[in-house]
């Protein structure tokens, strides 16, 4: 086994290890948080970053051929698809949960939120207001 192949093996293993750690973090976050909209944050991370790291490691193992190109295509597709599916899932949760306001802060209309944000931006003591709100 030549030196180049050893280097390929080590770099690929490193990428796959990073991907596995990210998958493990995803699972930990999914069991650690206690509401769907919090869990979704952890779950969406593995969809893009975890599978990217794992597939880049496998691409380095595979070398330069069509399999590598298809794996790259999978990564690019998931970059586009995963945020969309997360958005649709959060819309599902927001539309079907009747007591959503017990889990997070809800503004009835966008104007109230914008007014509050503008007021917080204009004042010098932004930190004080945020502290009082929280």
């Amino acid at each position: 086994m030549s030196a180049v192949e050893w280097i390929r093996l080590i770099i690929g293993c490193l990428f796959i290890l990073v991907g596995m750690v990210i998958f493990f973090t995803e699972l930990f976050g999914v069991f650690h948080f206690n509401y769907v909209l919090n869990r979704m944050h952890a779950a969406a991370m593995g969809d893009t970053l975890g599978i990217s790291a794992c597939l880049i490691g496998l691409m380095i193992f595979s070398g330069l051929n069509f399999t590598t190109l298809k794996m790259f295509l999978i990564i690019v597709f998931l970059w586009f698809a995963s945020p969309v599916s997360s958005h649709v899932l959060s819309r599902l949760e927001a539309a079907t949960n009747d007591n959503l306001s017990s889990h997070c802060e809800i503004y009835e209309d966008v104007e109230t939120l914008e007014r509050e944000l503008a007021a917080a931006g204009k004042d010098g003591d932004t930190e004080k207001k945020e502290a009082s709100v929280s």
Binding site: M40, I51, C54, L58, M71, I74, N97
Partner: peptide, 22 residues
């Protein structure tokens, strides 16, 4: 909730994709 289950199925899909590539 339903969103929980769908999210878990989405995660399983991601892991199965890595398994198929391996």
């Amino acid at each position: 909730r339903v969103a929980d289950r769908l999210m878990a199925v989405n995660m399983m899909g991601t892991m199965v994709m890595v398994m198929i590539s391996i």
